[in-house]
Amino acid sequence: MSDKQRVSRRQFLNYTLTGVGGFMAAGMLAPMVRFAIDPVLKPSAAGDFQSVASVDEITNEPQRFEWIVEQVDGWYESEVQKTAWVYRTEDDEIVALSPICTHLGCTVDWASQEEYPDQFYCPCHAGRYTKDGVNVPGTPPTAPLPLFDHKVEEGMLYLGQEQDR
């Protein structure tokens, strides 16, 4: 019994000391850390457009295009591969859809299911979307696929941020 008490007193002291040390360290580090991270916190990447494809490659059939963006995610800066399903509508409008299923985030495919040749299909839980990216009622997703901001300059398609709908 007394043995146990002694152990717990020692543990208590240990915790307390670690706590104090921790506070001191945090106090010393905080100003330096803020200084070091500050520049990347500026909203630099937001709203940037990336060239993704030449406009003549875009057909009425959705195609998958990939590009790389720099992403700052809290502590890390990394290169992230982005993907979009891109096609031209009957009215010659360019549509660029995010392939990320709005249910739990798997990547959707175009026309990968024989029964649904003109829909996007999610392999994870059979979620479906019509060609305009709107979720099919009765399947797990509850929102349409996000649309990428886009612009065309000198024959190239540029994509920006994805916008939830």
């Binding site: 299923c101 739990l104 985030g105 798997c106 990547t107 392999p123 994870c124």
Partner: peptide, 15 residues
């Protein structure tokens, strides 16, 4: 190995 699991995770992260 990390690259493979990362790519699989990215594609099927909902399941």
């Amino acid at each position: 190995n990390q690259l493979f699991t990362h790519l699989l995770e990215k594609e099927y992260r909902g399941r």
